[in-house]
Design a protein around this nucleic acid. Sequence first.
DNA 1: AGCAAGATTAGC
DNA 2: CTAATCTTGCTA
Length: 208
Amino acid sequence: MAERRMRGPGERWTRRSYAGETVDVARRMLGAYLVHASPDGSTAGRIVECEAYLGEHDPAAHSHRGETRRNAAMFGAPGTAYVYFVYGVHDCFNVVTAPRGIGQAVLVRALEPFAGLDLMTKRRGGVELGRLCRGPGNLARAMGIAPSHNATELARGALGIFSALEGPPRSSAIVTTQRVGLTRAAHLPLRFCLRGCAFVSAKRPHAS
DNA sequence: AGCAAGATTAGC
DNA sequence: CTAATCTTGCTA
Protein backbone atom coordinates (compact mmCIF):
# COMPACT_ATOMS: atom_id res chain seq x y z
CA MET A 1 0.00 0.00 0.00
CA ALA A 2 1.20 3.51 -0.74
CA GLU A 3 2.91 5.49 1.94
CA ARG A 4 0.95 8.30 3.47
CA ARG A 5 2.45 11.75 3.37
CA MET A 6 1.97 13.92 6.40
CA ARG A 7 2.74 17.59 6.84
CA GLY A 8 3.26 19.70 9.89
CA PRO A 9 4.09 23.37 10.35
CA GLY A 10 7.63 23.90 9.18
CA GLU A 11 8.34 20.24 8.67
CA ARG A 12 7.44 17.42 6.42
CA TRP A 13 7.88 13.72 6.83
CA THR A 14 6.61 10.49 5.43
CA ARG A 15 5.15 7.65 7.37
CA ARG A 16 4.48 4.25 5.94
CA SER A 17 1.17 2.55 6.66
CA TYR A 18 2.68 -0.96 6.57
CA ALA A 19 -0.75 -2.30 5.59
CA GLY A 20 0.64 -3.86 2.43
CA GLU A 21 3.45 -5.51 4.33
CA THR A 22 1.05 -7.00 6.87
CA VAL A 23 -1.22 -8.35 4.14
CA ASP A 24 1.82 -9.83 2.43
CA VAL A 25 2.98 -11.50 5.64
CA ALA A 26 -0.50 -12.91 6.23
CA ARG A 27 -0.59 -14.49 2.77
CA ARG A 28 2.91 -15.88 3.20
CA MET A 29 2.03 -17.36 6.58
CA LEU A 30 -0.39 -19.76 4.89
CA GLY A 31 1.25 -23.17 4.68
CA ALA A 32 3.82 -22.34 7.37
CA TYR A 33 4.04 -24.43 10.54
CA LEU A 34 3.17 -23.21 14.00
CA VAL A 35 5.20 -25.29 16.48
CA HIS A 36 5.08 -25.43 20.26
CA ALA A 37 7.61 -27.46 22.23
CA SER A 38 5.81 -27.47 25.58
CA PRO A 39 6.73 -29.31 28.79
CA ASP A 40 3.86 -31.70 28.09
CA GLY A 41 5.10 -32.52 24.60
CA SER A 42 5.39 -30.96 21.18
CA THR A 43 2.61 -30.06 18.80
CA ALA A 44 2.61 -28.52 15.34
CA GLY A 45 0.09 -27.48 12.74
CA ARG A 46 0.06 -26.02 9.27
CA ILE A 47 -1.52 -22.56 9.07
CA VAL A 48 -4.51 -22.71 6.74
CA GLU A 49 -6.49 -19.61 7.73
CA CYS A 50 -5.46 -16.18 9.03
CA GLU A 51 -6.55 -12.55 9.13
CA ALA A 52 -4.68 -9.25 8.93
CA TYR A 53 -5.29 -6.43 11.42
CA LEU A 54 -3.97 -3.06 10.34
CA GLY A 55 -3.50 -0.95 13.44
CA GLU A 56 -4.54 2.68 13.31
CA HIS A 57 -5.94 2.22 9.80
CA ASP A 58 -8.28 -0.54 10.89
CA PRO A 59 -11.25 0.15 13.20
CA ALA A 60 -11.53 -3.59 13.88
CA ALA A 61 -7.97 -3.88 15.26
CA HIS A 62 -7.36 -3.88 19.00
CA SER A 63 -4.57 -1.39 18.37
CA HIS A 64 -6.82 1.07 16.55
CA ARG A 65 -7.25 3.36 19.57
CA GLY A 66 -3.66 3.15 20.70
CA GLU A 67 -1.66 1.11 23.15
CA THR A 68 -3.22 -0.30 26.33
CA ARG A 69 -2.04 -2.85 28.85
CA ARG A 70 -3.91 -5.58 27.02
CA ASN A 71 -2.72 -4.87 23.47
CA ALA A 72 0.83 -3.69 24.28
CA ALA A 73 2.44 -6.74 22.65
CA MET A 74 0.79 -5.84 19.35
CA PHE A 75 2.99 -2.72 19.27
CA GLY A 76 6.14 -4.79 19.81
CA ALA A 77 8.78 -5.81 17.28
CA PRO A 78 7.82 -7.92 14.25
CA GLY A 79 7.89 -11.60 15.12
CA THR A 80 6.48 -11.00 18.58
CA ALA A 81 3.53 -13.13 19.72
CA TYR A 82 0.38 -11.25 20.65
CA VAL A 83 -1.88 -13.54 22.70
CA TYR A 84 -5.11 -11.96 23.91
CA PHE A 85 -7.98 -13.16 26.03
CA VAL A 86 -11.45 -12.76 24.50
CA TYR A 87 -14.92 -12.90 25.95
CA GLY A 88 -13.41 -13.87 29.27
CA VAL A 89 -12.98 -17.38 27.90
CA HIS A 90 -10.57 -17.97 25.02
CA ASP A 91 -7.00 -17.09 24.07
CA CYS A 92 -6.19 -16.07 20.50
CA PHE A 93 -2.75 -16.11 18.86
CA ASN A 94 -1.34 -13.39 16.60
CA VAL A 95 2.00 -12.60 14.99
CA VAL A 96 3.16 -8.98 15.07
CA THR A 97 4.05 -7.90 11.53
CA ALA A 98 5.07 -4.23 11.60
CA PRO A 99 7.92 -2.34 13.25
CA ARG A 100 7.70 -1.36 16.92
CA GLY A 101 5.00 1.13 17.72
CA ILE A 102 2.86 0.50 14.61
CA GLY A 103 0.47 -2.09 16.03
CA GLN A 104 -0.26 -4.50 13.17
CA ALA A 105 -0.61 -8.27 13.42
CA VAL A 106 -1.94 -11.43 11.81
CA LEU A 107 -4.48 -13.55 13.71
CA VAL A 108 -4.10 -17.30 13.09
CA ARG A 109 -7.60 -18.74 12.75
CA ALA A 110 -7.08 -22.39 11.80
CA LEU A 111 -4.40 -25.07 11.52
CA GLU A 112 -4.22 -28.42 9.86
CA PRO A 113 -2.98 -30.63 12.72
CA PHE A 114 0.48 -31.95 11.82
CA ALA A 115 2.25 -33.39 14.89
CA GLY A 116 1.39 -34.20 18.48
CA LEU A 117 -2.20 -35.08 17.61
CA ASP A 118 -2.69 -37.13 20.77
CA LEU A 119 -1.68 -34.22 22.97
CA MET A 120 -3.85 -31.81 20.99
CA THR A 121 -6.81 -34.13 21.29
CA LYS A 122 -6.25 -34.48 25.02
CA ARG A 123 -6.06 -30.71 25.50
CA ARG A 124 -9.28 -30.28 23.52
CA GLY A 125 -11.22 -32.89 25.42
CA GLY A 126 -11.37 -35.51 22.71
CA VAL A 127 -12.93 -33.68 19.79
CA GLU A 128 -12.57 -35.10 16.29
CA LEU A 129 -9.54 -34.28 14.11
CA GLY A 130 -11.45 -31.96 11.80
CA ARG A 131 -12.36 -29.63 14.66
CA LEU A 132 -9.12 -29.80 16.68
CA CYS A 133 -7.57 -26.55 15.43
CA ARG A 134 -10.51 -24.88 13.72
CA GLY A 135 -11.12 -21.41 15.12
CA PRO A 136 -8.63 -19.15 16.92
CA GLY A 137 -9.69 -20.13 20.44
CA ASN A 138 -9.67 -23.81 19.58
CA LEU A 139 -6.22 -23.86 18.03
CA ALA A 140 -4.74 -21.96 20.95
CA ARG A 141 -6.19 -24.55 23.30
CA ALA A 142 -4.97 -27.48 21.20
CA MET A 143 -1.47 -26.03 20.90
CA GLY A 144 -1.19 -25.18 24.58
CA ILE A 145 -0.86 -21.47 23.80
CA ALA A 146 -1.44 -19.48 26.98
CA PRO A 147 -1.25 -15.85 28.15
CA SER A 148 2.33 -16.62 29.23
CA HIS A 149 3.27 -16.66 25.53
CA ASN A 150 2.13 -13.09 25.08
CA ALA A 151 4.99 -10.80 24.01
CA THR A 152 7.43 -13.69 23.49
CA GLU A 153 9.73 -13.71 20.47
CA LEU A 154 8.67 -16.40 18.02
CA ALA A 155 12.24 -16.72 16.71
CA ARG A 156 13.64 -17.69 20.11
CA GLY A 157 11.14 -19.36 22.44
CA ALA A 158 9.32 -22.67 22.69
CA LEU A 159 6.60 -21.30 20.44
CA GLY A 160 7.60 -20.53 16.88
CA ILE A 161 6.70 -20.46 13.20
CA PHE A 162 8.61 -22.30 10.48
CA SER A 163 8.09 -21.68 6.80
CA ALA A 164 7.16 -24.60 4.60
CA LEU A 165 9.90 -26.20 2.49
CA GLU A 166 7.80 -25.61 -0.60
CA GLY A 167 7.65 -21.88 0.16
CA PRO A 168 4.62 -19.59 0.34
CA PRO A 169 1.46 -20.50 -1.59
CA ARG A 170 0.81 -19.18 -5.09
CA SER A 171 -1.89 -16.52 -5.33
CA SER A 172 -4.17 -19.00 -7.04
CA ALA A 173 -4.06 -21.20 -3.93
CA ILE A 174 -5.33 -18.43 -1.64
CA VAL A 175 -8.97 -17.58 -1.06
CA THR A 176 -9.48 -13.99 0.14
CA THR A 177 -12.67 -13.05 1.98
CA GLN A 178 -14.02 -10.70 4.60
CA ARG A 179 -12.92 -11.23 8.17
CA VAL A 180 -15.08 -13.20 10.57
CA GLY A 181 -17.10 -11.91 13.49
CA LEU A 182 -16.60 -8.17 13.05
CA THR A 183 -19.04 -5.28 13.04
CA ARG A 184 -16.55 -2.52 12.21
CA ALA A 185 -14.57 -2.57 8.97
CA ALA A 186 -16.31 -5.85 8.21
CA HIS A 187 -16.11 -5.44 4.43
CA LEU A 188 -12.33 -5.39 4.08
CA PRO A 189 -10.83 -8.41 2.25
CA LEU A 190 -8.32 -9.35 4.95
CA ARG A 191 -9.05 -13.02 5.64
CA PHE A 192 -6.87 -15.53 3.84
CA CYS A 193 -7.44 -19.29 3.51
CA LEU A 194 -5.70 -22.08 1.65
CA ARG A 195 -8.02 -22.99 -1.19
CA GLY A 196 -9.88 -26.25 -0.72
CA CYS A 197 -8.48 -26.96 2.72
CA ALA A 198 -10.87 -29.06 4.80
CA PHE A 199 -9.54 -27.61 8.06
CA VAL A 200 -10.46 -24.00 7.37
CA SER A 201 -13.13 -22.71 9.73
CA ALA A 202 -16.66 -23.21 8.45
CA LYS A 203 -17.74 -19.77 9.57
CA ARG A 204 -18.80 -17.50 6.79
CA PRO A 205 -18.05 -13.81 7.05
CA HIS A 206 -20.91 -11.37 7.55
CA ALA A 207 -22.54 -10.28 4.34
CA SER A 208 -22.07 -6.57 3.79
C1' DA B 1 -19.33 3.57 39.32
C1' DG B 2 -22.04 1.31 36.04
C1' DC B 3 -22.77 -0.70 31.67
C1' DA B 4 -22.44 -2.52 26.97
C1' DA B 5 -19.72 -4.65 23.44
C1' DG B 6 -16.19 -7.52 21.83
C1' DA B 7 -10.81 -10.57 16.44
C1' DT B 8 -15.33 -16.92 20.48
C1' DT B 9 -17.24 -21.34 21.38
C1' DA B 10 -20.14 -25.11 23.22
C1' DG B 11 -24.45 -26.41 24.58
C1' DC B 12 -29.67 -25.96 25.00
C1' DC C 1 -30.13 -18.30 21.15
C1' DT C 2 -27.41 -17.93 25.38
C1' DA C 3 -23.91 -18.49 28.89
C1' DA C 4 -19.24 -17.92 30.16
C1' DT C 5 -17.07 -13.67 32.41
C1' DC C 6 -12.23 -10.31 31.07
C1' DT C 7 -10.82 -5.73 29.19
C1' DT C 8 -11.87 -1.39 27.42
C1' DG C 9 -14.38 2.76 26.48
C1' DC C 10 -18.22 5.62 27.17
C1' DT C 11 -21.60 7.89 30.22
C1' DA C 12 -23.08 9.97 34.45
